[in-house]
Write a protein that binds this DNA or RNA. Structure first.
Length: 298
DNA sequence: ACGTTGACCTGTGTGC
DNA sequence: TGCACACAGGTCAACG
């Protein structure tokens, strides 16, 4: 589900809610134990309990939560993962217990963190809801430099799409045979772009997603670079795309799906030329484009 | 060095 | 209503 704009929205909401709070509890469901939690639960618990949240950061589609003991909680939401925040009335007793019993989404809430009140507010819990269980959770220990976290996927992560400069982007395209779509989705090259925003960026740049990157002209390269930035920033402004699962930490939907130009619009009229949008498979992923605005040739 | 395919999972929508 | 099938925002490994 979540690509850069969705994860960025989550991080921006989570940051003020968690900053300075102390972690007091942990809930790990059995489904989570098997695959999702990548650090042994006892080690995870001992590495976070009574530690204070120092920051809430994003790298590509990963969420990082550095703690006062130099450990870092790392989260990846996979396809269907959501973080949901619950404020707890102190009268109601143990929040993790309540979370398990009363949360309407509890069947797929496999993991939760509990935070002590700060500055007089109520205690809160953050639940990790993930029906498909592609999400992953790690604890990186004794992290001296946040830039070299030893987590698979993060270790080889490319430059964050929002930080990518045009000259860097052009270099990534040099002498490569691969398709534009597969390059945009490759997290080791560009971090944060997923299936929706790859299609949207190609449309805005008027580039067919099956073109080889080597075939792009200098002007097409810079248009594509600018289009990536444009659609990601638009996505953030609209608090993400909610086409099926994604919601914010308060459970509300983003609105960028209403602005999609091609993604999920198969058979609908192109917003520019009214030709019907087509859907095909490129790099194994569902890909949407306008056959008239995005020519394969040249 | 590529692309493709299947695996990992559950839920939802469609067509018969 | 039931059933089969296609499809879903991500990543990883195996194969050709």
């Amino acid at each position: 589900m979540p690509e850069l704009p969705e994860v960025e929205t989550i991080v921006r909401d989570l940051r003020p809610a968690l900053m300075g709070r102390i972690i007091t509890g942990l809930m790990v469901g059995s489904a989570c134990l098997e695959k999702m939690l990548q650090t042994p639960p006892r080690r995870f618990y001992e590495g976070i309990v009574m530690e204070q949240v120092q920051a809430v950061l994003r790298r590509g589609k990963y969420i990082l939560i550095p703690l006062s003991n130099f450990n870092v909680i790392v989260l990846h939401l996979g396809m269907s993962g959501r973080l949901l925040i619950t404020e707890v009335d102190p009268e109601e007793g143990d929040m993790i217990e309540r979370f398990e019993e009363e949360n309407p989404l509890n069947k797929h809430t496999h993991f939760a963190l509990e935070f002590m009140e700060s500055a007089g507010g109520n205690d809160i819990a953050v639940g990790f809801y993930d029906p498909r269980r592609f999400g992953r959770i790690w604890l990186a220990e004794d992290v001296q430099n946040i830039a070299d976290l030893d987590i698979p996927g993060l270790r080889n992560l490319g430059t964050d799409a929002l930080d990518l400069q045009l000259d860097q982007f052009s270099e990534l395209l040099e002498n490569r045979k691969r398709t534009v779509k597969s390059l945009l989705l490759d997290q080791t090259q560009i971090a944060g772009v997923g299936n929706i925003y790859a299609d949207e960026a190609c449309f805005v740049a008027k580039v067919h997603p099956a073109r080889s990157v080597a075939s792009l002209t200098r002007i097409e390269k810079s248009k594509l670079w600018f289009s990536i930035k444009t659609v990601l920033k638009e996505g953030i402004q609209h608090r993400g795309s909610s086409t099926s699962d994604y919601t914010s930490i308060r459970g509300d939907a983003g609105s960028y799906q209403k602005k999609h130009r091609v993604y999920g619009r198969k058979g609908h009229e192109c917003v520019e030329c009214a030709a019907p949008i087509e859907r095909t498979l490129i790099a194994g992923r569902s890909t949407h484009y306008c056959p008239r605005c995005q020519k394969r040739g040249e």
